[in-house]
Amino acid sequence: MAEIPESILRRSAAARAKAEGRPLDEILAEMGLAPEGGSAPAAAPAGEPAAAPVAEAVAPEPAAAAPAAADPGGAALEGFAAMADVGVPESLIERSTRARAKADGIALPGAAPAAPVAAGGGGGAAAAPAAAPVAAIPAGVRTQRLLTVVKANAIQQVKKEPHDKVNTWPHLVAAEFVALMVMTAFLLVFSVFVDAPLLELANFNEQPNPSKAPWYFLGLQELLSYFDPQVAGVIIPGFGIAAIAFIPYIDKNPSVRPNDRKLAIMIFTFFVMASAILTIFGSFFRGPGFNFTYPWADGIFFDF
């Protein structure tokens, strides 16, 4: 069997003693260990709970402070003292002891704020090294600083959710490269066969009939033949653009599922189709004088 450090054996003996309600020394004897420190045999018959060996060592502190040993807070204070065994810094134990005492309404010896816990007895071996790091930091020196405050709804998505992810290289980059090559090839081939239009030199004295705007404004030009110029040329496009820009602030529906957004999709589709129809109408169904024509009857009056 591997060598088990004595301190651990002692700790398990203490736990067993507490669980079975037997004296600690009896269990220590069973395990073949020497009884607790010199004062322990004397303390045990004196009616000590014999629960935690360290608590026992530091017990004189609360006992001396509060002669009414039966008070309920006493046990709690002993619990804090036991933390010194685990390596909790002494200053923290002292602070929580005070806080608990204050909350429970127990009077502590306020006159002695410095090291009241470790002052107990020689048995508090763990408390002594724990005090060292506390003393190493000079007063007034802060050992931590605030790097940033992350708000719940910050601009950056802090919360990491598990996602089905793939490497950008090669998966996304390859797809993009293909798209880019296809677009280039299409433009190149199209440009070989279809020349950009170039009519005669600009002439201020000869207005062609019909005069048409670039294709993406032909929907607006089409509107001009129905409404007053101020309505068709300024108010409708102005409000249209503003409405598009404000979509995210108007549409408060958080869902992105098409089934939940029927109204939004319907309205958007209506306006997209309306502008597409107006643009096609203005492009192909308007002839000389911007009058209605059929493109198959009178030809197309449209240039890209």
């Binding site: 170039l198 009519l199 005669e200 030199l201 002439n203 201020f204 101020q230 040329g233 300024v234 240039d303």
Partner: peptide, 22 residues
């Protein structure tokens, strides 16, 4: 920029719309 009849009159029509700004 090509400065042909198409360019001149398309831009004339387009920029005339801007003149209707209230």
């Amino acid at each position: 920029l090509p400065w042909d009849q198409l360019a001149l009159w398309a831009v004339t029509v387009g920029s005339n719309m801007a003149a209707y700004t209230p």
